[in-house]
Nucleic acid binder design. Structure first.
Lengths: 191, 191, 191, 191
DNA sequence: TATGAATGAGCCTTCATTCAT
DNA sequence: TATGAATGAAGGCTCATTCAT
């Protein structure tokens, strides 16, 4: 009997290879051949486990979005918001930045039903998570606006720092500024 | 007898066709054939005027970034910031949104020296423009942070609204929230 | 403990699965994977029992040709010819017509020594069988021509009715016309 | 300006290359690469003129069916039937037999709407043509049967001789036997 | 200045075959 | 005896680029 239980192993291998290759050469340069070579596997394996290239790309994006979910439970609302901010910046601090990957996923989303839905869910989840904590900190009528603006601030900073236009390659300054914004909000609109 | 002085006309035709096609089918689906057909010209014309596809893409992005420059002179600092905000959202309000085009340009930037430089210049110009006005409104030590955060907020809102995750397809709510943020800053940190 | 004596069982399973799949999707769409799935077996089993795909295809065609052999003994010459006619049309009256399978086998035969020989043997056998009975019915000099024409008529009708160009999906009309032809021959050239 | 008026030339080149290649290696072995090489053109040219491989295959079959049409006008009914018979056998007497091509087209037809329709039209046209002449030769109630049987006889003989099971590589014997059949019919059922 | 026919490299995908178990 | 994970060659197709006109 052939090896069994390889599916999760192979899928992980391939998704990680995809992230690496996309980070290095961009979506446009990402080929089945490159991915499989990076994963140390054959090209045929991709259709075997993901149906086709599109399937692998979607699985990779799903994997990335999954990492943004908050699993920890934090009771203090301010602390929890801080954690959300950090979590959103921590993803791409590693050597092989997933920055470009994100840009490409955003671009792909606009012309792909499935990916677009995933993006929207993710966007809404972030606002919901922020609103949950803001409800304990701010006057009710300010909650929605605060959550939306904080989410936008996080994404905007992430975008600008990722582009390398500002900052020194790390996000610590961006994190600090986001946290400061939260405190400003509490100072001004706290209940 | 061949017409002379067609160069600027042809280039404009092709750049606009490129924007239209990219908005419709995404960068991935944008081909020389589609662009030239849209422009009502032959495919050979592109290499004639832009060298190759890459040259046309870069020229198109340069064209888009150019549109973000502020040409008007406004003296009142708050009014000027409002105008900057509006200007940044107004680009893509037309029927054929350039949203996807932007995402793709960002993605392309990370793997293209020339495009990347353009992006960075654009990012910095926005902050500089904002800082210029904030200097008249805020305490000196707050200016830099305010400019950076406002720029991030604009980009973040633009990103989230463009993705269609929130809002009703127009940016008016996003514009309002950005303007409110500016006023909050002035209220809190005004000189 | 592995089962023994499975060979004939497995081979039959696979040949029948091949006939079913070929009838449904054509030779061009017939894959190892489809056949083995239909047979409820693994893909590896085919090389195990038939060496390779080609081996299975050849065995399948051999199986089909085998079914055309006349095993019954019929003494009356006219009755025997009628039976031969019926036998040649009866093969594909089932729900899953083997029509397409036949076309493909013919096509394959022309580029495959072994299959070609089988086809020729089959063709000649039909004429020989017809000639055997015609010898009792017709003048000697007419036998060869009668056998050849009857065989051609059978194949021609079968081809045209199979293609669906004429008839209502069943061969009864074709059978009747072939039989009529035989009677015409006897009436005209009977000894 | 590029060369113009090449379309019909190129299409003819490619269709003839397709017939040659199919005759030599069978449909299964017929590749875009082989065809274009044979035509002395590049592989891309096929999609340029025929959309895709399927388009070329259909055009090739259409071309073959076209050759079966009767363009000459012949008044004498018996002579006209003789001509029809000859015409149906003459197609593949050349060096590069289109025999295998026909088998493959039949097979393909059963799983392809467009090709199937073409085949049926062709089948019916042959019977119609034969019936047209038989009407002047036979009693009315015999016409339909005679036309159907003659058509079947032609196809059947063609099939068997093409397969090489009988005859010496040429169809003259088959032609003679078909003509004899027509005369038998007239002798027996003439008006 | 402008065309578009023609090219061919490179991509994704399919699928017969192999082989460790 | 039987599996099916894994391979990789080969195919069709796309498309940026070239070039004769």
């Amino acid at each position: 009997m052939p090896k069994v239980g390889m599916e999760p192993v192979r899928k992980k291998q391939l998704i990680e290879a995809t992230l690496e290759v996309m980070a290095e050469v961009g979506y446009h340069g990402t080929t089945i051949s490159l991915i499989s070579k990076r994963a140390g596997l054959s090209s045929g394996i991709i259709s075997h486990y993901f149906g086709d290239k599109q399937g692998l790309i979607e699985a990779t994006m799903r994997h990335l979005l999954e990492a943004l979910k908050i699993t920890q439970r934090i009771d203090d609302p301010l602390e929890r918001i801080d954690f959300i901010i950090e979590n959103n910046f921590s993803q791409t601090q590693g050597a092989s930045s997933a920055t470009n990957t994100w840009f490409n996923f955003w671009a792909l989303s606009l012309h792909n039903e499935g990916l677009h839905r995933l993006q929207c869910i993710n966007h809404k989840r972030l606002e919901r998570n922020l609103a949950f904590s803001y409800r304990k900190l701010l006057k009710p009528e300010q909650v929605k606006n605060a959550a939306a603006s904080t989410a936008a601030l996080i994404d905007g900073y992430w975008l600008r720092y990722s582009m390398g236009s500002v900052g020194n390659g790390d996000f610590s300054e961006a994190v600090a500024r986001c946290k400061q914004y939260v405190r400003d909000l509490v100072a001004q609109y706290g209940r």
